[in-house]
C-alpha cells in the first residue's frame, strides 16, 4: 500500500488544473468557461493547502483564503458583465462576442 504524501495531492491538482485549462479553451459557453476558471483556481487552492501541510506552515492556507475572496469578487463582476452582454444578444456563445476584433 502506498503512503499518502503531498505528491498525490499535487498530481491530483495538476490533473484538475489541466482539465480546467483544456475546458477553458475548448468550451464556447461563457458560463462554462467561467466554471473552468473556477476549476483551475480550485486546483491551485488544493496545491496551496498541500504545500501548506507538507511544509507545516500557514502561508499556503492564507493564500487560499485570499484566493477565495478574490474568486468571489471575480465571479460577481464577471457574471454581472455576462448578464449585461446576454441581455443584448441572446446567446452565451463566446465566439459571438467578438466586437473587439482587429
Amino acid at each position: 500500500m502506498f503512503t499518502l504524501t503531498e505528491t498525490w495531492y499535487l498530481v491530483l491538482a495538476a490533473l484538475i488544473f489541466s482539465i480546467g485549462a483544456v475546458g477553458l479553451l475548448v468550451r464556447r459557453n461563457v458560463l462554462v468557461m467561467f466554471m473552468c476558471v473556477e476549476l483551475m483556481l480550485n486546483a491551485v487552492n488544493l496545491t496551496f493547502v498541500s504545500f501548506s501541510t507538507a511544509l507545516d506552515d500557514l502561508g499556503g492556507q492564507t493564500a487560499v483564503f485570499f484566493v477565495l475572496v478574490v474568486a468571489a469578487a471575480e465571479v460577481v463582476v464577471g457574471l454581472g458583465i455576462i448578464v449585461a452582454i446576454m441581455r443584448r444578444r441572446q446567446s452565451a456563445d463566446v465566439d459571438d462576442i467578438s466586437l473587439m476584433r482587429g
Binding site: L25, R28, V94, D95, I97, M100, R101, G102
Partner: peptide, 8 residues
Amino acid sequence: GLQTGLVR
C-alpha cells in the same frame, strides 16, 4: 488578423 476578438 491575430486580434480575432475571440476570447478562446
